[in-house]
Design a protein around this nucleic acid. Structure first.
Lengths: 342, 342
DNA sequence: TTGAAAGCGTTACCAT
DNA sequence: ATGGTAACGCTTTCAA
């Protein structure tokens, strides 16, 4: 049944002309190469008639470019990454690129293996949320002339372009917001890991608390994937031990979800007994009763910058390949959960 | 800086042997071709030393197989698809396949364009959630010998393998469950679209209501992407107009989220004033107060079957390529929202 | 204005 | 036991 796949050679033979001529016409070089209009038209019509489509594979092999970008994130099923994926994908296709995705699970070994797989000359660019210990792997990638763009987190010790958000600043703001609403015992719930964006959020919280001379209460939950059932219980214990807390700042939304369960179990009312803010806004925060205040990352702008930078690098428009470092502002959405007046 | 890319030719030259020999050794045919152990070892060591990796591009061109599977869904940022994506991806990599993803937005034109793009000989298989009007495109794909597997929804009119779930049966069960808990005025909230899985869910509801001779109340919301802000309001109007309803069955989780907002606005208490069940379980249903009963699709099994079928087709293990039709059962999780005794 | 041919990195058939 | 070489489908230089 399979339609016979037709190649340039077939076209040339059928039309009794040379492969070269066909190729020139296909690549829009008919004029430049002064191929007669008649022939050009004839070839173009024939191509349409037989429905010829060039082989990307062969083109890639010949040109050394595959028009493929790897999108490597911690977990593609995480809402944040999935949303970015969706937006990136659309922009990529518009520019003739395809996206291959993969999840690292924040495991350096898996990340290295994945990168190794793709380095094998079949990919043009990488958009990566780096795991720990990926410095040398990424440096290699850059040295080997791949277009590399980090996002969500970056690696200070190496020279590599990135698109990230103002983690520390937004965390500072959110903490200050809680303080302004009357909190002075604010707990910070985060995850144990070397991810720089998490550290920056912690820094923001720490700084805000220190500015006001308030004591810090930090819960570092074990990093795990998938999210453990016991997470909520651990938060519950923390809350019981620190019963004087009047505010809670979650470093990311899935921690907040677990925390909300814990608060519910303890019959703590929001915002009466406890003000709550979370990093990473989520559809569900608006649905929840009461609505949960949250810091929203600018998904659309992140994706746009990501593609913009990637395309510039691929087109060699960034002279030294090290000129694309974007830091974007977030938006704090104040909702019922952190509004003391309610 | 770029490391010089080394090819089989380079290896052959450096070692003073022929390309063929190197290729045989690389492909594990050393013994079969009776190449001396000494040489084999020498070559293998050299390969390790210089860190040679074969070019997938060239291999694909030569072998006519790219080791790439396209994962084409309605929207990769939808939690259901993203979760499947994650699981598929893992299994694919284990088998040496890469996954390219794309979202159709349920738009037939976009789907066709996407398929056209990938058909261009650079892809081995397709996992697809078909949009409407995709019959001929998919038939072509199958005829042209691509491995094609539909999932989430299928197309009755064509001969194509699929992996789906028991939509009608589960919808029937969920409706019956509501009836058994005392409901006799159950509203069904769904989306206007020709998606077969949605129609099947509607059928299940209809059948259950008819078995008991209860009247049907169906709200068909306009299909839209992204989800419209006004959806919740439309559900609210429906609830006001049908104030006698004592049960609500949502055809998919995002409709339930909108419906929960509407119920909240109307101060309807769950389960006191209204029992609620939804198709497609979601993390939030367990988080929500009260917990929402839902039908869970077996994500893990779906992904596993999907990869299993895909690999079989790729290995030509399915004789006529039409022997892989899987229909999986779902699980109804009864929670507080549909428990009349609470 | 058009064509021949080299080359991208492989694999595998046919020699030796 | 090993090597030569055509072929996969394309682009592009050089020649005519």
């Amino acid at each position: 049944m399979a339609k016979k796949k037709i190649s340039i050679k077939d076209i040339a033979k059928s039309l009794g002309i040379s492969i070269t001529t066909v190729s020139f016409i296909l690549n829009g070089k008919a004029k430049e190469k002064r191929i007669s209009e008649d022939l050009t038209k004839k070839v173009e019509e024939y191509i349409k008639e037989v429905g010829y489509k060039p082989s990307h594979l062969a083109q890639s092999l010949r040109l050394g470019k595959s028009k493929v970008i790897v999108f490597m994130v911690e977990d593609i099923s995480n809402q944040f990454f999935a949303s970015i994926a969706r937006k990136i994908e659309e922009k990529a296709y518009k520019n003739g690129y395809k996206i291959i995705y993969c999840s690292t699970n924040n495991d350096p070994e898996k990340a290295k293996a994945l990168i190794e797989t793709f380095k094998v000359r079949s990919v043009d660019g990488f958009i990566i949320t780096p795991t720990p210990n990926l410095e040398s792997t990424i440096t290699d990638l850059v040295d080997e002339d791949f277009a590399v763009l980090l996002f969500d987190r970056w690696i200070p010790s190496i020279d590599c372009n990135y698109v990230i958000v103002e983690n520390e600043k937004s965390a500072f703001e959110a903490t200050t917001h809680l303080i302004n609403n009357g909190c002075n015992k604010i707990g910070f719930i985060t995850v144990e890991s070397d991810q720089i964006q998490m550290n920056d959020r912690l820094k923001g919280y720490t700084k805000a608390m220190e500015v006001h001379g308030f004591p810090k209460d930090i819960l570092m939950l074990p990093f795990q994937n998938p999210v453990d059932q016991g997470l909520s219980y651990k938060i519950q214990l923390f809350l019981q031990k620190n019963s004087e807390l009047d505010g809670l700042f979650f470093a990311t939304n899935y921690l907040a979800f677990e925390g909300l369960q814990a608060l519910n179990t303890l019959k703590k009312r929001i915002p009466n007994d406890m003000l709550v803010v979370s990093f990473d806004d989520h559809y569900f925060f608006k649905l929840f009763q009461p609505n949960i205040s949250a810091i929203e990352q600018p998904l659309e702008v992140i994706s746009q910058k990501l593609m913009e930078g990637m395309l510039m690098m691929l087109d060699d428009q960034i002279a030294d390949k090290q000129g694309f470092r974007i830091i974007l502002p977030n938006t704090l959405h104040v909702r019922e959960s952190s509004d003391a007046k309610k």
